[in-house]
Amino acid sequence: MAYGRFAHLYDELMSDVPYEKWMSYVKQYVPAKGASVLDVACGTGTITQLFMQHGYNVTGVDLSEEMLAVAAGKVGDKVPLYAQDMSQLDIGATFDVVTIFCDSLNYVLDEEDIKRTFASVYEHVKQDGYFLFDVHSLYKIHDIFANETFTVNEEEISLIWNCFEGEYEHSVEHELTFFTKDEQNDYYHRFDEFHVQRTFEPAQYIQWLEEAGFEVVSVRAEYGDEDVEETSDRIFFAARKNK
């Protein structure tokens, strides 16, 4: 599932996201020093740009052409960007670390597609390299998102975000309605997007990672800083390729 027009508003609406915490998490496993990174589901390129600023050699991948267009405006021609499905990566290179951050893996709804994603990532990780990703917890899907409404009301943009229990087990449907101001005509344009996310028990992700050939070295919460608890919000996985 790819972002559409939302891509061009994403950075404004997500301006308070602590992207540096993802960078600190990566540095626990792969210090920069010229290390190579494949930033899968790179979105608008904010973390991609941070990788570059912190001294990593980074390549970005995203399914959404709209997201990649925004990313290209940030990184220019310094970072190769590819429009690819994460379950069918074909970069022609291996990397010291592959990342899938900002709960992007939760957009993969089918179990077999997650397995294919892990297998595809495995082929792009160097020997003794790392695969790092985060997902929403079950608690966040069922107790924070489901049947809730979130709003943003700014001068230039407003958002009504309705969340419902999804069709799949442990999934949530996001109905997003945007109103963006037209400065020339002093009225607002409306557009809608529909997104679905799904998550699984940590033990299930561990099983799939091991089936793909990875050794799981860490499962932590909140950017790797806390133990996983029943009410943890975001779960971080670190897996190493050592076969």
Rank of each mutant, 00 (worst) to 15 (best):
E148F: 00
L105E: 09
K74M: 05
Q28F: 06
N153L: 02
H195M: 02
I160D: 00
E112P: 11
D110E: 08
N106P: 04
Q197H: 03
V98R: 14
Q84N: 06
Y56K: 15
Y205F: 15
S36C: 04
D143C: 13
F164R: 14
Y3I: 03
D39K: 10
V26D: 14
C163D: 06
I160W: 01
H174W: 11
R198Q: 08
Y82P: 12
V196L: 05
R240C: 04
E154K: 12
F118G: 12
K181S: 03
Y3H: 01
F194K: 02
N185K: 15
E222F: 05
M67G: 03
S24F: 03
V79P: 06
I114K: 11
L209H: 09
L50E: 05
S87N: 12
G76C: 09
D77S: 14
G45L: 12
E123S: 14
T94W: 07
G224R: 03
D85R: 09
Q53F: 08
V196I: 09
Q53L: 15
V98N: 11
I100L: 08
A35P: 08
D225Y: 12
D186Q: 10
I141H: 10
D16T: 10
E20N: 05
S87P: 09
I157A: 12
L63F: 05
A203N: 04
Q204D: 13
R5W: 03
T199E: 12
D192G: 06
T231V: 00
N242S: 15
V40Y: 13
V61S: 08
Y56F: 15
T99G: 03
Q127T: 09
L89C: 07
V30E: 01
D233Q: 13
L68D: 07
A212W: 07
R198P: 14
G224W: 09
V26N: 13
F179L: 04
Q49T: 15
L209P: 14
K33Q: 15
A7P: 04
V26I: 05
H195P: 10
L132F: 09
H170G: 02
Y107S: 04
K241Q: 01
V135D: 00
I144S: 03
E193P: 00
V97T: 11
V79R: 07
L105S: 05
Q184A: 08
D96F: 01
K140I: 11
M52K: 13
H142Y: 06
D39H: 07
V219Q: 09
L13K: 13
E165Y: 00
Y10G: 05
T46P: 00
V58C: 04
Q197M: 03
G92H: 00
K21F: 12
F145G: 05
H170P: 02
Y107Q: 03
